[in-house]
Amino acid sequence: MINTNFFINILRFTLLVLVQVLVFNRLNFFGFINPMVYILFLYWYPIKENRATFIGLSFLLGLFIDFFSDTMAINAAATVTIAYLRPVIMNFVFGVNLEFQSFKLGNTTKVQQITFLALLIVVHHFVFFTLEIFSFTNLLLILKKALAIGLATLILCLLFSTLFSVKKE
């Protein structure tokens, strides 16, 4: 059981990095929209796992994306932030349901899933573009980019998660 989970995560990690750098970093929709689908890794990652491993893995994921897209360590910083904040966001979205032993992401309502994903994306993009642009004189530019790219990311992530979701019993 642990082994299959482990391999699934490794596979996800590699595939998401490759899809991100080879397909979505070259999309340039409207000249600047490059959705960041690799956030799905943090959305799909099992909930009851060691938090330290999870944060370490997220850092590595961000770092790999950074290597490929020449963005210093901005992706790593943003990804580590949402990895750390994920339990807080989950508490906010799922509330008491989280306490149950049989809690699974697939069993929650569509609205909850979308809110969870959207919150992850909002925090990630805000940190990312703040660091990228790095000055508050450009606040409008930060908001514009975060909003447009965040929306594109959300739509694509939803499509992906529907496409690859495990069937409900």
Binding site: D66, M72, A77, V80, A83
Partner: peptide
């Protein structure tokens, strides 16, 4: 742990905000 990773990535980022791109990244 979070603070540790954050400091690593921030230092790499801020370092490269000066003239040259980082040697490793």
């Amino acid at each position: 742990l979070y603070i540790f990773f954050m400091i690593i990535s921030l230092s790499f980022t801020i370092q490269s905000h000066s003239f040259h791109q980082s040697k490793f990244f």
